[in-house]
Amino acid sequence: TRVETATETAWISLVTALHLVLGLSAVLGLLLLRWQFPAHYRRLRHALW
């Protein structure tokens, strides 16, 4: 049971790290898009909202 718990903890930390990385890359990508294509971003936002 001790090994299982350790594996579970490792998986949880791995998944958390993955989610953090994905979230950060998504935010960075959005910022980059907004910085590179302001007109396109505004049009996209206008279409979405």
Rank of each mutant, 00 (worst) to 15 (best):
L48S: 04
L24C: 11
Q36T: 15
V15I: 12
S13V: 11
T9E: 08
H19G: 03
T9G: 12
A39S: 13
L48P: 02
A10F: 02
W49G: 02
V15H: 00
A6S: 11
L20N: 00
T1A: 10
G29Y: 02
F37G: 02
A6E: 09
F37L: 10
T9L: 13
L31F: 11
E8D: 14
L48G: 02
R42G: 12
A17V: 11
L18G: 01
A47C: 07
I12L: 13
I12G: 04
L28M: 11
L48E: 05
A26S: 14
A47M: 06
R43Q: 08
L24M: 15
L31D: 00
L14V: 11
Y41E: 06
R2L: 12
L22C: 11
S25F: 06
W49V: 03
H40K: 13
E4M: 15
A6N: 10
R42W: 09
V21A: 09
W11E: 03
F37N: 01
L31S: 10
A17W: 08
S25R: 02
E4L: 10
R43S: 08
R34W: 02
L20H: 00
L28T: 05
V27D: 03
Q36R: 15
P38F: 08
L28W: 07
T7A: 11
L33G: 04
E8F: 02
V27W: 08
L44K: 02
T9C: 06
L44I: 12
R34D: 00
Q36M: 15
T5M: 09
W11A: 01
R2V: 09
W11H: 12
V27C: 11
R2H: 10
W11S: 02
E8W: 00
A39C: 05
T16W: 08
A6C: 15
V21Y: 03
T7I: 12
H19V: 00
E8C: 05
R34F: 03
P38L: 09
L24T: 06
L48R: 04
A39R: 15
T5V: 06
L22M: 14
G29A: 13
P38A: 15
W49S: 04
L24W: 07
R34E: 04
L30A: 13
A6Q: 09
L31P: 04
A6I: 07
V15D: 02
A10T: 13
V21H: 00
L48H: 00
A26I: 11
L48N: 03
L22Y: 00
Q36K: 11
L28Y: 05
A6L: 09
V27P: 01
E8H: 01
R34H: 06
S13Q: 14
L32E: 05
T16R: 04
A6V: 09
L32C: 04
R43D: 08
H40I: 07
L28N: 03
L44S: 03
F37Q: 05
V3E: 00
S25M: 09
Q36H: 15
W49C: 03
L33R: 02
R45L: 06
